[in-house]
Design a protein around this nucleic acid. Structure first.
Lengths: 204, 204
DNA sequence: ATTATTATTGAACATTGTTCATAACAGTGC
DNA sequence: GCACTGTTATGAACAATGTTCAATAATAAT
């Protein structure tokens, strides 16, 4: 039996979350089971339930960590270089997104593919956090829209974001052989942005 | 005990598949369990394993059915109306895709979200079937590319398809509040196609 | 009828998440 | 030191998963 004073409640929470993080990194979301996790930290399944309401709760916390990392990346200075054209900055931010999806694949897949718990509607704070994913793009699209086209700009950001998101999903799940005939994915991002941006300009 | 001559092997396969289909429709992929299915057809779990190698095998067969339906829709005459502009036809086919995703949501989600079995790489025929999803778009994009730009046309089709796919995924999983401020999704499709097509023309 | 074949069964196993009475512990008061 | 109190970790137990496989029931063949 683990000594109950080995860790404070706070330490234990961190320990569980950290261990969960490395498990997901190594074996994916499927590998994150209560018993597996408990064994690794030298406790038993029940302990986890003293700290987290459920496994889904723990999954969510891992997702939050992933989301925070992603938001940090997308808000980096590199994506708002005044010396570069808007299109270049947009390419940069979308490229960073794609890079993140690959580098943190198991976490990223967990965030978007792993089954969600039922009562997910009550977590407004989580939704708001996710919605912040659009902000960098919205800002970068500013030069292309007038002040009263804010609505349209928001829509453009969401459509563009969905596009890159769809590309990543097909890429990372391997469900569809996207890069048929060996077209590098970076070229696809580039093509998407160039075409879309050109379309925005032209479509006014 | 069910009489062994109640159904031929072939009838049994159809019965299982049909029942599986309705279960997924009602309760989603999660509701499709061996025991649940077996009970509904008046047999026992073991019987399913006489017909299908595993539950994953059965999942795959359901996906095949879904995929066939989808391919049929996307290849309908409505998407190749010579009286309409290419952009209008493209809108039509993407709109049909989105409609399908909503109408057949549980099946569509199962196809793209449900965990895949490990040895999925060996099923070339399934991959080829999925790849046929791009064909309608590739054809509709023909007017915009010269004969020797076939490669580029393929890429454009994949990028555009991924875009609508990403939109649908975010929509149907409800993970992200895409339609913030009540922008109808049809408007987003319209905007995507108009912008993208305008970009193609301009970007040459 | 007897035998051979084959389809169906259902108990069994290894996994899940989850609960909860109980035991082990740390602290407090005397 | 001892008894009491409150917290924390436990691990057995429950339900439900996919899956296997010897036993059995139903049919076909002889």
């Amino acid at each position: 039996m683990a000594r109950r004073s080995d860790h404070t409640r706070e330490e234990l929470k961190d320990l569980i979350l950290d261990t969960a993080w490395t498990i997901v990194g190594k074996k994916g979301a499927e590998g994150l089971t209560a018993r597996n996790l408990a064994t690794q930290i030298g406790y038993t399944p029940g302990t986890i339930y003293n700290i987290f309401k459920s496994m889904d709760d723990l999954y969510l916390q891992v997702n939050v960590r992933t989301l925070d990392k992603l938001l940090e990346v997308l808000n980096s200075k590199d994506c708002n270089d005044p010396k570069k054209s808007p299109a270049q900055n947009i390419k940069k931010v979308l490229g960073l997104y794609m890079e993140f999806a690959r580098e943190y694949r198991p976490y990223w897949l967990m965030m978007f593919l792993h089954p969600l718990p039922e009562g997910r509607k009550k977590m407004g704070w989580y939704q708001e956090k996710i919605d912040r994913l659009f902000e960098p793009l919205e800002n970068l699209l500013e030069p292309f829209f007038s002040g009263r086209e804010k609505q349209k700009r928001k829509m453009a950001a969401r459509v563009l974001w969905s596009s890159i998101h769809g590309l990543c999903l097909l890429q990372e799940t391997g469900r569809i052989s996207l890069v048929a005939d060996k077209v590098p994915e970076a070229e696809m991002v580039s093509y998407l942005v160039d075409t879309f941006v050109a379309g925005i300009k032209d479509n006014k």
